[in-house]
Design a protein around this nucleic acid. Structure first.
Length: 683
DNA sequence: TTACCTCGAGCTCA
DNA sequence: CTCGAGGTAA
């Protein structure tokens, strides 16, 4: 056969095999005997082996998996993969429908495309000129992990779109999941082989897709359902979401059989009730129902709020609840000394995972629910993930004697001293959270501070995890972050699970962290209310560490997004001699970064000016405005005189405004003040 | 918060 | 083989 003939044969084999594939897997109606399929398959494999140039991206031979990857490369989505807002109750659905109608300025009944919300993992598939070229997980919505070889093994995913009606580039969005029956079979197999079983279909699907060796994925019974499009969607003729799903189905993607189009809020709620009833009979797990405005032009008109579309919502089923027993109530001490009560629970399987801990948030919360040791409680996984104690079961509270009804355990009370260090526990006026006053004297706070310091987004010291920090602090080897830089491999070796190699690696990681950025360093210090973003703002504003160290509360408030609270936190931190010492020690340990110039915002726009505030400003509090003015070098006076340069007037300004008008002093509002601060006079 | 995958390396026993 | 650490997903 001539080379051209071989290419033709290979193309025919690919199309033929995919046709049989689809019939077998998607339609469940085999069109040829397995042996015949295998013969064609091996013929194609042979051709591809002989002529590697014939190995196309859409070849079915690729479905058996490819040699392992080293890692999953990042992959940017053509259009962001957004999340959906959630509704849990009918009134929230009503509110959604109202928002939609308000947004569309219509009083008519809106049609919605509705379908079950699959409980799997969201995936985006890219087709270029009709050929599947890659797919990725959701990731942060902008960039996901590319898991293309794994996705190719899913028979549900067409390697080539039929016909010609597709855009040059189109992203198909959908969910990878595992059928409950397939999950059970997989677990039976795992058990037989002595491998670990998976706890639920979702985790089995996620785990299978995260295999670096796609040949393992090929052996896992994964399914895919398409429910939307990303980039390239505007190149499709579909005018409604329903049409769009039909188009995806025509391309060979599995789509939800239960999908429908309903009218208005009533239609939504009826559909919800129907699916809720159907739920146990469905062959896969779902965690709710998704509603989307059916007309695509209306979807466009409604647009988005921050990271979620306004035209769609997920109506979630109520979280599954289970009852279990409170074994104890511990208190945890956080980095800032925050004392958090945590319920230790008898392990209970609820919502697909085993729950053993549940935060009780704060003392008031425990009081309100009156959770005590020994109580039987109802737990659920709220808002997707965090376990929550819903309520206690009062009649099951253990009593001291059979008929007396005297509870065995007293109401929970926060300890008066920190369980870790014995320092007093204090709670500020109208603050919900109590704090250990021990500061860095408290080992728990010290450990958290060190972990924060070493975190990836801070100093990025790889290999310094909680177990190691525990050991270092408990052995008295490390008291402050600066001590890390004095550690030697010899000191480290000898700690648990610390051999020569590990010790050496850790020292190298610590060493490497010396070269950093000012923003990372400031963030790493763990100042209260100073997160990554604020640390960056501070670094940009002051340019260098010395300028920051010299700043007082007023100067700090000149930094964008820094208000009185954050400024006070920073000032308090820097006011502690101990913290200054640590910063000094760290510098001496050789930490370094490139320093820049202070930002122009530091200019003293109002130097020598006197301003008077009167009335209530729309957004700024009086002392915020004052701090801003002072940070810009201005003075705030109490009364208006001829020497006053500006009067800043807000709502209900009184006599000071009259006086200003009388004396001919310039009157400005809050916007005017902001203008003045940002651009100076002469605007 | 829990479950899962992956890596490196320590531990244990042959 | 087991553990700790680091990463991801919901």
């Amino acid at each position: 056969m001539a080379a051209a003939g071989k290419a033709e044969r290979a193309a025919w084999l690919r199309a033929e095999l995919e046709r049989h594939n689809h019939a077998y897997y998607a339609l469940d109606a085999p069109t040829i005997p397995d042996a015949e399929y295998d013969r064609l398959f091996r013929e194609l494999q042979g051709l591809e082996a002989e002529f590697p140039e014939l190995l196309a991206a859409d070849s079915p031979t690729r479905r058996v998996g490819a040699p392992p990857l080293k890692e999953f490369p990042p992959r940017r989505h053509g259009l962001p993969m957004l999340s959906l807002n959630n509704a849990f109750a009918p009134d929230e659905v009503e509110a959604f429908d109202k928002r939609v109608r308000d947004g569309l300025e219509t009083i008519a009944t809106v049609d919605y495309a509705v379908e079950p919300k699959f409980d799997g993992l969201a995936i985006s598939l890219t087709y270029e000129n009709g050929v599947f070229t890659g797919g990725a997980t959701r990731g942060d919505g902008i960039t996901g992990e590319e898991v293309t070889p794994n996705l190719r093994t899913l028979r549900d995913i067409p390697l080539r779109l039929p016909g010609t009606g597709w855009p040059a580039l189109v992203e198909v969005r959908g969910e990878v999941l595992m059928y409950r029956a397939a999950f059970a079979e997989l677990n039976a197999r795992q058990r037989q082989r002595g491998d670990k079983e998976f706890v639920n279909p979702r985790n089995a699907a996620a785990g299978s897709l995260r295999q670096l060796d796609s040949r393992i994925t090929a052996g896992r019974p994964l399914s895919f359902f398409a429910y939307g499009v990303g980039a390239g969607g505007d190149g499709l003729a579909a005018r409604t979401h329903g049409d769009l799903i039909d188009q995806l189905a025509a391309w060979g993607f599995p789509v939800a059989a239960e999908r429908a189009v309903v009218g208005g809020c009533r239609g939504l709620l009826e559909y919800f009730a129907k699916i809720e009833k159907l739920r146990p009979a469905l062959p896969y797990d779902i965690d709710g129902v998704v509603y989307k405005v059916n007309r695509r032009d209306w979807q466009d008109r409604l647009g988005f709020v921050s990271r979620a579309p306004r035209f769609a919502i997920a109506h979630k089923f109520p979280a599954e609840e289970a009852s279990t027993e409170v074994l104890g109530i511990d208190v945890q001490v956080g980095r800032t000394g925050a004392i958090t009560p945590v319920a230790r629970l008898k392990p209970v399987f609820v919502g697909g995972v085993t729950v053993t801990n549940a935060t009780l948030h704060n003392a008031d919360e425990v009081r309100r629910k009156d959770v005590r040791v020994g109580d039987t409680v109802i737990v659920r996984r709220a808002g997707d993930v965090i376990p929550e104690v819903v309520a206690i079961v009062p009649e099951k509270r253990p009593t001291r004697d059979l008929f007396g009804g005297v509870p065995l355990h007293p109401p929970f009370a926060l300890p008066e001293t920190c369980p870790e260090c014995g320092s007093a526990v204090a709670r500020g006026e109208d603050e919900a959270i109590a704090r250990c006053t021990g500061g860095l004297f408290c080992p728990a706070q010290r450990k958290q501070a060190l972990l924060h310091f070493a975190a990836r987004r801070a100093m990025d010291i790889e290999g310094l995890g909680d177990k190691l920090v525990d050991q270092l602090v408990d052995a008295g080897l490390v008291h402050t972050p600066a001590d890390l830089y004095g550690l030697s491999a010899e000191t480290l070796a000898g700690l648990e699970r610390m051999g020569e190699k590990s010790a050496h690696n850790l020292v190298a990681a610590i060493d490497a962290s010396r070269q950093t950025t000012l923003a990372r360093f400031v963030f790493a210090l763990g100042i209260r209310n100073v997160g990554e973003a604020t640390a960056r703002d501070l670094a940009r504003h002051f340019g260098g560490l010395d300028a920051l160290l010299a700043a007082d509360a007023a100067a700090l408030q000149a930094v964008p997004d820094v208000g009185p609270v954050v400024a006070a936190s920073i000032a308090a931190f820097l006011g502690e001699a101990h913290n200054r010492q640590v910063i000094d020690d760290l510098r001496r340990a050789g930490l370094s970064w490139e320093e820049g110039q202070p930002a122009a915002a530091g200019l003293q726009r109002l130097a020598g000016k006197t301003l008077v505030l009167t009335g209530t400003l729309p957004t700024l509090k009086r002392d915020q405005a004052k701090a801003l003015i002072e940070a810009a070098g201005g003075k705030v006076a109490g009364s208006v005189s001829k020497k006053t340069d500006f009067v800043v007037a807000g709502e209900e300004a009184g006599s000071k405004l009259e006086k200003a008008l009388e004396l001919g002093v310039t009157v400005i509002d809050e916007d005017g003040l902001i203008q003045l601060l940002e651009k100076g006079e002469g605007q």
